[in-house]
Design a protein around this nucleic acid. Structure first.
Lengths: 179, 179
DNA sequence: ACCCATCTAGACAGGTCGGTCTATCGCTAG
DNA sequence: CTAGCGATAGACCGACCTGTCTAGATGGGT
């Protein structure tokens, strides 16, 4: 449900109540509970949907960046810059889910982490194609840069962190290529 | 209040109710509300206290790292490795506060961000002493690495991200020194 | 025309939320 | 001794929480 995504993303997963959500969406309570057993399952479904859309959008921009592996990697940061610039940007819902459900065994925490792992896997692939000596380690570093930039962009409502992280990524790629 | 910190950090700021907290601490409700006007003010006080302790502990380890600026900077990452290894590690309460109160104008969001800014300022100082060409930019990058490593360490309950981020930081410092 | 699945609205339950209030207790300073 | 301050326990408030349930409206397929 688009409304659920909007409210959860805007206000937080725990902060939004079922009633609020249903009123905003104009949907009856039973309709919701016929589709999802609980609020938790709704959240899991929303996260899953968002994960797919997120990665599809990101990979589309990567694909549009041309054939050069380094440019494709840097396109990841350009994509984030565009995201940070979007009007309703409120950080990464997965980082926020990890924060709101801090217990690592919680299903929502784990689902959010699966997204981060999936993104990291895509980065690893890109790094490998770019000929990195240790693609997994480089992807790990790049994902730190990205997550840090997301948090900073959220708190400052600025797109600058994307360029900052991109510049560092470019340095690291060059350094790796030189070795 | 030590109990407040423990519960807030373990379960989340929104997840812990006042009643739960008071029962755990063995304190009467009126006592709490004589000291703090609201739960929000209690949270702000807790965050402020944690900010001071956090930075004091970090800077103590930096001071113990000896006189060489690069070693002092890398000590920041060693300090994080020790933190990640602590039994009750559940990520960074400030990142989590930014997530739980996603609206950038919210007092708690802003208080959490002030902590990140303060840490970044300390990093900038260390970078400047280390002779970085652009200390602010380098500190920005290092803080991305740190925040990303914290999120990953939280979700995976591992100390490895500290070493991973440290290695990247060492590369970047070397790169800067070579230029 | 009818059936049945699916929607709606809304009452209801039992519990928790943050916050206020009263009344009593214990300590300590004068 | 006593006055007063700060703590206590705990009732209480209205609002909200997730989740269940009933009862009626809607609409498409046969």
């Amino acid at each position: 449900m688009a409304t659920a995504w909007r409210l959860f993303y805007r206000d937080g997963l725990r902060a939004v109540g079922i009633d609020t959500l249903l009123a905003e969406a104009g949907v009856a309570k039973m309709t919701l509970y016929n589709h999802f057993a609980s609020k938790e399952e709704l959240i899991l479904a929303i996260l899953d949907k968002r994960d797919l859309e997120f990665r599809a959008s990101l990979l589309a921009q990567v694909a549009a960046a041309g054939p050069y592996p380094v440019q494709r990697l840097l396109a990841v940061f350009d994509w984030h810059e565009g995201w940070f610039a979007s009007e309703a940007f409120k950080g990464c819902v997965f980082i926020r889910a990890l924060s709101e459900y801090p217990e690592p065994t919680h299903p929502i925490h784990q689902a959010a982490w699966r997204h981060k792992v999936a993104v990291k896997a895509a980065l690893t692939e890109l790094c490998a194609v770019a000929g990195a000596r240790d693609a997994a380690a480089l992807a790990e570093t790049l994902s730190y840069l990205i997550d840090g930039a997301i948090v900073t962009a959220h708190a400052t409502q600025s797109t600058a962190p994307a360029r900052s992280a991109r510049a560092t990524a470019a340095q690291l790629l060059k350094l790796d290529a030189a070795a």
